[in-house]
């Protein structure tokens, strides 16, 4: 499996090859922004050729013209056609272009940090430096390296992350899994539940991570495609590993996950499952603190009732004086 950034670059080039009139949507990119030199050459050729092509031109002609413009015999038209045939929807070109841009920015910063020994582990091989500025520089260097490393790993797979054997999950875990099954199968459903189903309704773990990533992408108004979701998951894992609780014991004990993603993808899920089970999840999450509050109230000592009569009895009642001042 290729790396995340390789997939993003291939997606961008694929949509541009399919629909060359969209090349201006990636005009802020430079061929040097691509991590793979061949991808940069294809992008350069696309930029050179796209402006001269009529909007209505056969895809094979585009492939041959772009392949010729690269001037690289290792980039034949067939290779470009393969990119185009595996491309995602062209209308998301700007999103993929932004991803390539972000990756290039991080790579440029990381390259600078690598060149500067102040960002490295130091001549002693990594002991903690004494001054705060040096500690800070080293942390920056590590953070940049982590970002770039995440981009060069295979993309996180939301199906594998939610593929624990249902029999090994709690009832709440199975409900979460059903919700995510529908949201992953029908990505537009996230908009039905996003406004009222918070990520915190899910137990800490992979289910919450996948839902939070889908919600974040939807909140940005971006498409919840596999690639965009993988990008968001990778970013969250790099930025906030401490927020991701360790996998529950049940998930850890599940059979190898490789068999399960297909089950989750192919499992028939009733439309509206996410909304129905999401409501149950919210209700249950609200019920637990309410029950705890009621129990706390009941556990308090009861207030003693107040009676209007004097506990000392009628004898304690003060004598009423007459107008003359004597007691009758």
């Amino acid at each position: 499996m290729g790396s995340l950034i390789d997939g993003v670059e291939r997606a961008l080039l694929g949509v541009l090859l399919c629909d060359h009139v969209r090349v201006p949507e990636a005009a802020h990119l430079d061929p040097a922004d691509f991590g793979t030199a061949a991808h940069g050459r294809i992008f350069q050729a696309l930029r050179d050729v796209a402006g001269t092509l009529p909007a209505a031109i056969g895809i094979n002609a585009v492939m041959h013209l772009v392949a010729a413009a690269t001037g690289d015999p290792a980039i034949p038209a067939d290779r470009l056609l393969a990119l185009a045939l595996t491309a995602p929807e062209p209308r998301f070109t700007a999103v993929y272009a932004r991803m390539v841009h972000e990756a290039a920015t991080l790579a440029a910063l990381a390259a600078h940090a690598e060149r500067d020994p102040a960002y490295g582990p130091g001549p002693d091989g990594g002991s903690t430096p004494s001054d705060a500025a040096a500690v800070h520089r080293r942390a920056l260097g590590y953070a940049l390296a982590a970002h770039v490393a995440a981009l060069h790993r295979p993309p996180p797979d939301p199906y594998a992350m939610t593929a624990a054997d249902p029999a090994a999950l709690t009832a709440a875990g199975r409900r979460e899994q059903e919700i995510l099954a529908e949201l992953l199968q029908d990505r537009d459903r996230i908009h039905d539940v996003r406004s009222w189903l918070a990520a915190e309704a899910f137990a800490p773990g992979p289910h919450r991570d996948v839902y939070a990533a889908m919600a974040a992408v939807a909140d940005r108004g971006e498409p919840v495609t596999d690639l965009v979701l993988a990008w968001e998951l990778a970013r969250r894992h790099t930025f906030r590993p401490h927020r991701t609780a360790p996998a529950p014991a049940a998930a850890a004990a599940a059979p190898p996950a490789a068999a399960h993603p297909a089950v989750r993808i192919c499992a028939r899920v009733e439309p509206g499952t996410a909304a129905r089970l999401g409501r149950q999840l919210v209700e249950e999450n609200a019920r637990a603190p309410l029950a705890a509050a009621v129990a706390a109230i009941n556990a308090r000592p009861r207030m003693r009732a107040w009676y209007p009569s004097d506990p000392r009895g009628p004898a304690a009642k003060p004598a009423r004086r007459t107008a003359r001042g004597d007691v009758p």
């Binding site: 500025a133 940049l144 590993p241």
Partner: peptide, 11 residues
């Protein structure tokens, strides 16, 4: 710049 435990100021 974001990192695991927060945000580092770019100096």
């Amino acid at each position: 710049l974001a990192y695991a435990d927060g945000w580092l100021r770019v100096t």
